[in-house]
């Protein structure tokens, strides 16, 4: 028996800031920075948005596509590195806001940018084992780069929710593999406001080693090669790394293009690969095959070999805006507004 994606939903905040606007504040050539990162803009959450609201929006978009009782969901896991509460789960609020309470289990996951894919694997196990009918895996972030740090050009906000189960499966997960080591390339210590990173150390020994190794494991497990897939999507901390990894693995640009949302919205961290996967599912046809490899600093990669089924045509994919539409619906803001929205201005206590 296989588990798979029963439904999906993504959410991207509407505000954007351009690299040029950020660079202008810090005396950098922001446009060049953007070109180098292959990022045209990054999404910014509104002052009333956080990982909880983004997760709820995504979870509701996911449930809007199907006629499944929310109370049939046995588990909700939300992966993020920017949960609004250090202690107090995001997942319970999501559960309450989609009407899935009280008979379910819920928890928040953290594994840098791959906490959401870890949640997918967990819910696969729980549904294949028949412990529950459906599980929901959410990946969402509103992560921040320190002002002036290179990360500030890419750290954005967004998320996606996948409903995982073994019936009404719209996209079957044929195989999943993971590749994990202890590699401190990026972290945030307890109580620290902004994450820290190892600079260029985040590249070869971290992102590329894990993504490529995981991808190779997945090819081996599935007995497949790049040309067997219609789409490929990778964790996308910027627009450069996933393109290079894809090329190294033998994928063509056309396979990668649909899921490469980072160019228009930046790095949504835990949301990144799941938003990319949602963009693919927005347009995929029955029989399409998808290759997905996420990455989380610290470090690890989760890979998925997916086949879209006939059931995708039964999903109400137009019930909520597509990823493409959310990317197109935007409002650019200046750095002052961005700083205000992101809480970078010191205020007196309300």
């Amino acid at each position: 028996m296989k588990a798979g994606i029963v439904s999906y939903g993504a959410y991207i905040p509407r505000y954007r800031i351009a690299p040029k606007t950020i660079g202008a504040v810090w005396g950098n050539d922001g446009e060049a920075m953007g070109r180098n990162l292959n990022i045209r803009a990054k999404s910014v959450p509104g002052p009333d948005e956080d990982v909880i609201t983004i997760s709820v929006e995504a979870a509701r978009a996911c449930m809007a596509k199907v006629s499944i009782e929310p109370t049939d969901i046995g588990a909700i896991y939300v992966g993020s590195e920017s949960h609004p509460y250090a202690v107090k789960p995001t997942a319970t609020i999501v559960a309450e806001a989609i009407g899935a309470t009280p008979v379910l289990t819920a928890a928040d996951f953290e594994f840098a940018c791959k906490a959401g894919t870890a949640a997918i694997q967990t819910t696969m196990g729980l549904t294949i084992s028949k412990m529950m009918k459906y599980g929901m895996a959410v990946g969402a972030d509103t992560s921040q780069g320190a002002p002036g740090d290179a990360l500030e050009y890419s750290a954005s906000a967004g998320g996606a929710a996948l409903l995982v189960g073994t019936d009404h499966v719209a996209a079957e997960i044929n195989h999943t593999v993971s590749y994990t080591t202890d590699t401190p390339d990026f972290w945030r210590r307890e109580g620290q406001r902004y994450p820290s990173h190892g600079g260029r150390f985040t590249g070869e020994p971290a992102y590329f080693k894990h993504v490529v190794s995981c991808a190779q494991l997945l090819f081996k497990r599935a007995g497949s090669q790049p040309q067997d897939y219609d789409y490929a999507v990778f964790h996308q901390p910027n627009g450069k790394f996933p393109v290079r990894a894809a090329k190294q693995l033998g994928f063509k640009d056309a396979q990668v293009d649909t899921g490469l949302c980072v160019r228009d919205i930046g790095n949504t961290y835990s949301g990144a690969i799941m938003v990319g996967l949602s963009a693919i599912l927005d347009e995929a046809e029955p029989g399409d095959r998808i290759f997905a490899v996420g990455y989380g600093s610290g470090a690890g990669s989760d890979g998925f070999d997916i086949t879209v089924t006939d059931a995708i045509s039964k999903l109400r994919r137009d019930a909520t805006p597509t990823v493409k539409r959310m990317i197109e619906t935007h409002e650019f803001i200046d750095y002052a507004t961005y700083a205000k929205f992101r809480g970078k201005i010191l205020l007196r206590e309300a």
Binding site: G46, E49, I52, E349
Partner: peptide
């Protein structure tokens, strides 16, 4: 839609 309404500090 679902948003943050406020917080106790």
């Amino acid at each position: 839609t679902f948003r943050k309404l406020g917080q106790d500090g």
